[in-house]
């Protein structure tokens, strides 16, 4: 039996025939949020472990990128809004049922925290830096003593932020590709891995890079496992989710996803990192760049493909 649907008198821009209301801004926002979460998590972790000296890039220097990433991310979100001048409405209520709302609030907490964190290390980065005002000097001095407490807060908020980047999508029951709770951990792990790649790229210290590469290999393995899990879940679920999975298993996103995300963005860099650990000489920026690129493509693909999937009726 064949079934055909005609919709007459309806051709709304960005909705018909396929929903395409979120463009590059949202995936970029999720991507930058993920990187920021990754860097913050490891900065917090190694501070708590008392490894500020050995892991200087992780703890001190890479976090300078976090506020930049977050501000750029928020700016991308802002660009996505169609009624921008009412942006402040986001911050007049807290709506726990809406991931968009608690995500915006999380960013409101995370961004100043990451700025303060970097401020406490500014003097080490720029030795003759002068805060000029005594009050600022004292405040920064106060926070410098509270780094451990801040590290705990950063780790916690990094996990919230990382999971949020996935939950933002998975909360939409109407889009079968997104409507799976695996997206939370998957985006978190992917965010941690892209954060690590940034740190590895920046670090000049061999031991630090070694430790980070080892962690990264584990994270990539977890990510690959979660991706397999994602598809197993889809293929054993309802018709709409099977259809969503088929976009990646022969459908229009197959090549982009498997070649750029899975092979070039995960598997290949993991192999390079393993070889590098075994003593082969591989410029470290190659796997780092591949991971960063793969993470970006992953978010673009997920956002775009998800909007195509829908209920059938």
């Amino acid at each position: 039996m064949k079934e055909e649907l005609f919709i007459s008198g309806r051709d709304i821009p960005n909705i018909d025939p396929f929903l395409n209301i979120w463009h590059w801004q949202i995936p970029l926002y999720l991507y930058l949020g993920g990187i920021a979460a990754g860097i913050m998590f490891f900065a917090g972790l190694f501070t708590i472990m008392g490894k500020e000296k050995e892991m200087a890039t992780t703890v001190k220097w890479a976090p300078f990128l976090v506020p930049i990433a977050l501000v750029l991310g928020l700016f991308a979100l802002f660009l996505d809004l169609k009624h921008e001048m009412y942006f402040w409405r986001l911050y007049t209520t807290v709506r726990m049922g809406s991931p968009m709302s608690w995500g915006a609030w999380t960013l409101m907490l995370v961004t100043p925290l990451s700025m303060i964190w970097s401020a406490t290390y500014l003097k080490e980065a720029v030795p003759n830096w002068n805060w000029k005002f005594k009050l600022i000097e004292q405040t920064i001095g106060f926070f410098t003593k509270k780094r451990r407490e801040m590290a705990w807060a950063m780790m916690f908020l990094a996990v919230v932020l990382g999971v949020y980047t996935g939950i933002l999508l998975s909360a939409f029951n109407a889009r079968p590709l997104w409507n799976t709770s695996i997206l939370g951990p998957l985006f978190l792990v992917s965010g941690l891995s892209t954060g690590l790649a940034t740190i590895i790229w920046m670090s000049k210290n061999k031991t630090e890079r070694r430790i980070m590469s080892q962690i990264d290999i584990v994270l990539i393995a977890v990510e690959l496992f979660l991706i397999v899990h994602l598809f197993m879940g889809f293929l054993s679920a309802t018709a709409v989710q099977v259809e969503a999975a088929e976009l990646f298993l022969g459908g229009q996103f197959t090549v982009t996803f498997w070649v750029f995300v899975v092979i070039l963005g995960l598997a290949f860099p993991a192999v390079l990192e393993i070889l590098e650990l075994r003593g082969f000489h591989i410029p470290i920026w190659i796997p780092a760049l591949l991971i960063l690129f793969g993470g970006l493509v992953f978010r673009f693909v997920m956002v775009e493909a998800g909007q195509i999937t829908r209920y059938l009726y």
Partner: peptide, 21 residues
Amino acid sequence: HDECIGCGACIQSCPYDARYS
């Protein structure tokens, strides 16, 4: 209208594509 920021979340959430920007 003047509380809506145009984020599009509701458009994504509607299984019937009943909303537009």
